[in-house]
Nucleic acid binder design. Structure first.
Length: 564
DNA sequence: CTGGGGAAGGGGCCC
DNA sequence: CGGGCCCCTTCCCCA
């Protein structure tokens, strides 16, 4: 440390950013210091230019282009954004000031479109991730023809297929990544697209990926009847293409600031609710009285979506917040508490609160000393079933979970996953894996008596993150090329999703220019591969394909067939 | 880096 | 159909 730095003490204030955001949000709600008003179809939203410029590439460029103009004039500006649905604009503003995106299921595509138009990349990515949960998007990811999947998906078999897909392990990871997106602060430095406006084609893609099993949402209906849409069912893509910085959709003029009249916004929502009720009189999914009203209305939207698929009003149900399909009667309120943070079950002894009563019950065993899980071979008793499970596993000495790369064996599946997510076996990757079913014979009994003749089966290719994790550190020592992983854990989910997409190969993604571009941004310039899908990859990312191919080879392509 | 404990969340089964 | 109970997987944390 140099003498000059001796007197400098860095004192971090971790809460500062969130507090700052919170205060800005308070100011926005109170209309204080607002120097920008966004309008959409009559609804008005006062906001701050600096915040919008920070969160939106579009506004950044816009305000940058008028360099000092507003500052000099000091005038208040109104930006008319009729191309962004009011609710979507509201959600995006809420995101900008709270780092949390809360949207009804039916408005997901509007938000995606708005995020793309305004260049809010992380939101657009999150929306695409969520929309990727749908059966339609799944099929798109699998490279099936994008157009006219409706007939296929409408069949009961296809419905079951969708449910099956939603139960795959990958979904948990997707949701996880989505949560990470939601929890992350507004990304002020997303991978900068050259122009937010140029992202129109993915918008149309996203609308084409609309689950055809669902009836058109009120928002879509509204868009269809919007004068600019001119009745084109896919007019959103058209609409997304039109606005430019100087385009006719965005009108600027100076005037006195207007506080957004709540009536304007709520009025919009009322009409939306009215429309939603038109879907049918399903019972509200949100039976929990403590659930926020907005969520309740979102639940109705989800119920409407479910009804639109002519599915029985019982399970499964779609979470209106994260779009996840929740299986099991009465499980949705339980799931919703993961979003609301509500913990209604409190331990009378120690005061700890839980979201679920069964968790409280297990917790109470600590106080009562109850150990209901007894080892059949010894007097050992355990608090949790997994304790007994681990105990039995250790007793047997079996290590059924072996890393296919370095062949280190683990007694626990999650430990193997952790091992593979890390870099501990990367240096072993050039080693040829042992092959043959005899390799799995020892310890093949698996845990809990489940048949696990091949532990690899516990790691479907698409669910195994490490397949896509050939970090630069393990890049055969070449050290060239950009790292494939983001430095932050929060970005890991998105990175995994993108790398999973990369795994699909450019030939399957040829119709998705933005996805390809995103991959390109994150993995280095691979434009040539996009242009020439048939060419074998040479970039560091190619290694991941080699590893993926190896794994696929090992698993006999079984998982790939499941994907198909 | 690994082993182990614990929490969280989802699904199945049953009432 | 909602809720209770249980099991399972995954993740996080700590030693």
């Amino acid at each position: 440390m140099s003498p000059g730095e001796d007197g400098l003490i860095g004192i971090p204030f971790p809460e500062h950013s969130s507090e700052l955001l919170s205060h800005l949000n308070d100011q926005r709600r109170a209309g204080l210091l607002c120097d920008l008003t966004l309008t959409s179809r009559g609804a008005r939203y006062p906001t701050h230019r600096s915040v919008m410029a920070a969160v939106s590439l579009y506004f950044r460029q816009l305000f940058g282009s008028e360099e000092g103009g507003a500052d000099r004039g000091g005038g208040f500006s109104v930006c008319q954004l009729d191309c962004v649905a009011p609710d979507a604009l509201d959600a995006l503003l809420e995101f900008a000031y709270t780092a949390t995106l809360t949207i009804p299921s039916s408005g997901m595509r509007d938000v995606l479109q708005g995020a793309q138009l305004l260049g809010i990349q992380c939101v657009a990515d999150a929306c695409r991730d969520i929309l990727g949960e749908t059966a339609e998007a799944e099929k798109e990811f699998l490279g099936e023809p994008r157009v006219l999947q409706a007939d296929v998906v409408k069949t009961p078999q296809a419905e079951r297929g969708m449910v099956t897909l939603s139960r795959r392990k990958t979904d948990k990871k997707k949701i996880k990544s989505i949560r990470q997106h939601h929890a992350a602060p507004p990304s002020l430095n997303p991978p900068p697209p050259t122009s937010p406006i140029l992202q129109s084609s993915p918008a149309s893609d996203s609308f084409r990926s609309l689950p055809s099993t669902q009836p058109p949402s009120p928002e879509q209906e509204e868009l269809r009847h919007h004068p600019e849409q001119n009745g084109d069912p896919r007019g959103v893509g058209e609409m997304a293409r039109v606005p430019t910085l100087n385009g006719g959709f965005v009108h600027w003029y100076n005037e006195r600031p207007h506080l957004a009249p709540p009536a304007a916004v709520s009025g919009d929502r009322v009409s939306e609710d009215d429309d939603m009720e038109g879907f049918g009189d399903n019972d509200a999914l949100m039976g929990n009285a403590s659930t926020p009203t907005s969520l309740a209305s979102q639940g109705r939207a989800a119920a409407a979506a479910v009804a639109g698929r002519k599915r029985k009003s019982q399970t499964p149900q779609q979470c209106p917040v994260c779009q996840k399909i929740i299986h099991g009667a009465g499980k949705l309120p339980r799931h919703m508490r993961t979003h609301t943070g509500e913990k209604p079950f409190q331990c009378n002894t120690c005061g700890v609160r839980f979201t679920r009563n069964d968790k409280l019950k297990i917790h109470m065993r600590k106080h009562t000393g109850e150990r209901p899980y007894t080892c059949p071979h010894c007097p050992a008793r355990f608090l949790h079933s997994y304790d007994l499970k681990n105990h039995l596993s250790l007793r047997s000495g079996a290590r059924p979970f072996e890393c296919p790369l370095c062949h280190k064996a683990f007694a626990r599946e999650d430990h193997l996953q952790r091992h593979r997510k890390g870099h501990s076996c990367l240096e072993m990757r050039t080693r040829r894996p042992r092959r043959g079913p005899d390799h799995w014979e020892d310890g093949g009994a698996g845990v809990n008596g489940r048949e696990q003749s091949n532990p690899l089966e516990a790691f479907p290719l698409q669910a195994h993150p490490s397949v896509f994790l050939p970090s630069s550190a393990g890049d055969g020592g070449s050290g060239s090329g950009p790292p494939l992983m983001f430095p932050g854990e929060a970005e890991r989910g998105r990175s995994l999703a993108l790398q999973a997409l990369a795994h699909l190969g450019p030939h399957r993604l040829a119709g998705y220019p933005l996805i390809l571009r995103s991959l390109d941004l994150r993995m280095g310039n691979r434009e040539a591969e996009v242009e020439d899908p048939g060419r074998r990859r040479r970039s560091p990312a190619s290694h991941q394909d080699q590893w993926a191919d190896k794994e696929k080879e090992e698993s006999g392509g079984k998982e790939a067939e499941e994907e198909e």
